[in-house]
């Protein structure tokens, strides 16, 4: 790819001006609101902060040591992993099947695609509110439907054994359309000649997907698995809105724990240490993604 070469000197003053004019605003914003907070999280994580007086005392590794002995935090880690283990397979499989269903254009595919994408563009607050009301134990639509087909009522978000599952339902319902879209992008990149060849070899529809679609979508699968995993570790909004971490801490995920430590217990230093731990987890997952996509690229050459 060609680029215009900047050579320091009088002649290119005009170009230097353009570079600065167009890059500095972004870099100031990136520095102030992204890099500085990341650095500050690191700095604060070694401090005890009094929000009222603004006093900061250096406490060394104390916050980190406390985190790994803090049962609340460790439980929130387990809860997040449980959430991730439920959400990722469901969202990826449902998204994949939906993509296969509407991949070939037919009269109804455009309509269905729009319908499945509606929750993706609808705001999270609205989705959570409406599904939350649908899950209401006594007046919700879900229990009415269940009772009509003879299934006993469920407690959904109000019962510890169902609350995290209900959050999984809300987030998968909202986001599965996006997964579908990523799979569609991958499917559209597969050359139709591959399917024709499989056809000639006498492959059934199922075999075609098993031997052509899935191997060809390896990179797409990796991308989706990793982004959905990252999203799983970020889950927060729907929980803050519905259960606030309850009932009986059943939905206390990592971000909920960070939020509570910061804004309920006023432990900003400790919350920063937890943020750093979460950031490190997410960075490791991202690096994994880069490795995957890099090795795929090399494989293609």
């Amino acid at each position: 790819m060609d680029r215009y070469q900047y050579k320091p000197g009088r002649k290119d003053l005009d170009l230097l001006f353009a570079i600065l004019l167009y890059v500095v605003p972004t870099m100031v914003l990136v520095f102030l609101f992204q890099l500085l907070p990341i650095y500050k999280a690191f700095e604060y994580s070694f401090q005890k902060i009094n929000l009222m007086s603004g006093a900061k005392t250096f406490v060394g590794m104390k916050n980190y040591l406390a985190a790994f002995q803090d049962e609340r935090f460790l439980t929130s880690m387990v809860t997040t992993i449980r959430y991730f283990l439920m959400r990722v397979p469901i969202q990826v499989i449902v998204g994949f099947l939906l993509a296969l269903l509407i991949y070939k254009p037919q009269r109804w595919t455009g309509f269905l695609r729009t319908v499945i994408l509606l929750p993706v563009v609808t705001s999270m607050v609205v989705v959570t509110a409406i599904l939350g009301l649908m899950m209401h134990p006594s007046n919700g639509l879900f229990n009415s439907i269940l009772q009509m087909v003879g299934i006993p009522s469920l407690g959904f978000l109000t019962v510890p054994s169902q609350a995290l599952e209900s959050i999984v339902f809300i987030t998968v319902w909202k986001n599965t359309g996006l997964t579908m879209l990523f799979f569609l992008a991958g499917l559209m990149a597969i050359s139709p000649t591959l399917y024709e060849a499989a056809q000639i070899d006498g492959a059934s529809a199922l075999q075609k997907h098993w031997y052509v679609t899935i191997p060809m979508l390896k990179k797409t699968f990796a991308f989706i698995l990793i982004t959905t995993t990252i999203h799983s570790f970020q889950v927060f909004g729907p929980i803050l809105m519905t259960t606030n971490g309850g009932p009986l801490n059943a939905t206390r995920v990592i971000v909920m724990d960070i939020y509570e430590n910061a804004f309920v217990f006023n432990q900003m230093g400790y919350a920063s240490a937890l943020s750093v731990i979460l950031a490190l987890i997410l960075i490791v997952i991202s690096l994994l993604q880069m490795r995957v996509s890099k090795s795929e690229k090399r494989g293609k050459r």
């Binding site: 972004t26 870099m27 990136v30 102030l32 609101f33 992204q34 890099l35 500085l36 907070p37 990341i38 500050k40 999280a41 604060y44 990252i230 970020q234 927060f236 971000v255 960070i258 939020y259 910061a262 900003m268 919350a271 920063s272 943020s275 979460l278 950031a279 997410l282 960075i283 991202s286 690096l287």
Partner: peptide
């Protein structure tokens, strides 16, 4: 640097961003 900001999503820097702002 821009790619790095992508790796640390808002939820992981919510508290320090709040303090910086």
């Amino acid at each position: 640097l821009i790619m790095f900001t992508m790796m640390v999503p808002f939820e992981a820097r919510m508290i320090p961003t709040f303090l910086v702002v």
